[in-house]
Computed example of a mutant assay.
Amino acid sequence: MKKFMLIVREDLEKIGKMTDEERFASSPNMVEWIDGLIESGNYITGTPLLIEGRYVGKDYVQSDGPFIESNEGISGFDLIWAENLEQATAIAQSCPMVMIGMAIREVRPVIDMLT
């Protein structure tokens, strides 16, 4: 099994105008999906992210939002186990947020530097 990160991308401008309660009330019930991944042995960890943040570079810190030019940004992630990129992609496609068009999942293999 290989490790994959399923990055959640959403319209940060839109959800940035919501309270956390409004944001998560409008989201589908992710608990059942996560529970299914746990039961299948595919789930490692994950969490939603707050909208506030900073971009940090060698000579700068940008603090006027978590995005520069695009409204779309990272709003959470999940780490999973999958046999290959195709299986990880299928798991990402089954995400309730993806299925209703609320979010996009970017699927990325993780390099395990400790093995």
Rank of each mutant, 00 (worst) to 15 (best):
Y43F: 04
G16P: 04
R54A: 09
C95Q: 06
K3S: 00
M102C: 03
V98T: 07
I111E: 08
L85A: 13
A82Y: 00
V56M: 14
I80Y: 01
G16Y: 02
G65I: 02
W33H: 13
Y55D: 14
E10H: 00
M97C: 11
V107W: 03
G41F: 13
G53Q: 07
D64P: 03
L37A: 12
M97W: 14
I38H: 06
W81Y: 15
E32H: 15
G46A: 06
P96A: 07
P28A: 10
G76K: 02
E22Q: 05
A88V: 02
L49S: 10
F24K: 12
I34V: 11
K2V: 07
I15G: 00
K2C: 03
S63F: 08
E83C: 10
K14V: 01
A25E: 02
Y43R: 10
F4A: 10
A88K: 07
F77H: 14
R108C: 04
V31Q: 13
P28F: 10
I34P: 12
D35M: 06
I15D: 00
T47K: 05
A92R: 00
D11Y: 03
V107T: 08
L6G: 01
K3A: 01
K17G: 00
G36I: 15
V107D: 13
P66T: 14
M30W: 01
E21P: 11
M5Q: 06
G46N: 09
G57P: 12
K2H: 05
E86A: 14
A90S: 05
D64W: 15
K14P: 00
D78C: 11
Y55K: 12
V61G: 00
A103S: 14
V98P: 08
Q93R: 13
I34G: 14
V8K: 09
T47C: 07
D112Q: 04
A88S: 06
I104C: 03
S94P: 01
A92S: 04
S75N: 10
V56S: 11
E52T: 13
I80H: 00
N84A: 13
Q93P: 01
K3M: 05
A88M: 05
I104E: 07
F67I: 15
M97F: 15
L79T: 07
D35C: 10
L79M: 13
K58G: 14
E39G: 02
A88R: 05
G53W: 15
I34H: 04
M5Y: 03
K3H: 08
